[in-house]
């Protein structure tokens, strides 16, 4: 009984520590950003490192996601012979829900994990302390550019991913279901409002903020060599996935 209570207490404490750490990190980032205190060169470097490098994996993910969504809507469409709805079904699912989530998860794996590993091995090899010794503050130099770069990169990748997914939807709709491009496009343009696209993009950018904060937090709190780095990367992607799923719910409830 006491042991169970002890375990529960430890779990709650560690949860508080992680969440609090992330919130604090977010707060400091925000303050530094408002004061304009961040390293612009680092921002550009990170933007390249995070954005350009993720283009192939995001495009491929989007292509297959579009395909899968067409298949899933296709099952309904075939049952009700409502071929005019394919563009709407695919577009709505991809732009508002599945696109941001799947691209967010891939982005978390590609960029977030990488970022945690990068920061983690800087901590392990005492480079972060080295920065402090050179009177360079870690947050404006290391964290703010990364957070900003992730949000910007994610926004651009989402625009690209949306386009690729819809293109993939059209392609596979034609190949697998025999729905021609024109009717797919017509139903897509008819039913999808700018609002749907906006919600998806906003949501995805918010996911990027979550990914950035988790990966920076776990990266900076690495302890103990190679094993510690692997463990932290693991924790970072798990926390990011959890936050993406939970905040998606809140977004959906708030922005109808």
């Amino acid at each position: 009984m006491t042991r169970a209570l002890l375990t529960l207490g430890m779990v709650v404490l560690s949860l508080c520590r992680e969440v609090g750490g992330m919130a604090l990190l977010g707060f400091y980032t925000f303050v530094n950003l408002l004061r304009g205190r961040f390293d612009a060169k680092e921002l550009v470097r990170n933007l390249y490192k995070m954005g350009v490098v993720s283009v192939p994996i995001v495009s491929l993910t989007a292509l297959f996601t579009g395909g899968t969504m067409v298949i899933q809507s296709g099952i309904f469409v075939q049952r009700f012979q409502a071929y005019g709805l394919l563009g709407w079904g695919t577009g709505y699912a991809v732009l508002r829900e599945v696109g941001p989530i799947l691209i967010g998860l891939m982005f978390s794996g590609r960029v977030g994990a990488n970022n945690a590993a990068d920061l983690g091995s800087m901590v392990v090899t005492e480079q972060v302390d080295g920065l402090r010794a050179l009177a360079i503050e870690p947050i404006p130099y290391l964290i703010v550019p990364r957070v900003l770069a992730m949000m910007l990169a994610m926004f651009c990748l989402l625009v690209l991913g949306d386009a690729v997914a819809i293109g993939g939807g059209m392609l596979f709709g034609k190949l697998l279901l025999g729905v021609d491009y024109a009717s797919f496009y017509a139903s897509f343009v008819d039913a999808i409002k700018l609002w749907d696209v906006t919600v998806g993009l906003l949501k995805g950018t918010f996911f990027a903020l979550m990914i950035a904060l988790t990966s920076c937090h776990y990266g900076l709190s690495v302890k103990g060599g190679a094993v510690g780095v692997g463990q932290s990367v693991n924790d970072a992607v798990v926390a990011a996935a959890l936050l993406i799923m939970v905040s998606d719910d809140i977004w959906t409830m708030v922005l109808r």
């Binding site: 891939m106 978390s108 590609r110 990488n114 945690a116 590993a117 091995s121 190679a226 510690g228 693991n234």
Partner: peptide, 22 residues
């Protein structure tokens, strides 16, 4: 080294998620 472990972990997440999607 420890950086290599981080890279491997990253690659594993991306590749296995992608495998799931495909």
């Amino acid at each position: 080294g420890s950086e290599g472990v981080g890279w491997a972990t990253t690659r594993a997440v991306v590749s296995s998620s992608f495998a799931v999607i495909v």
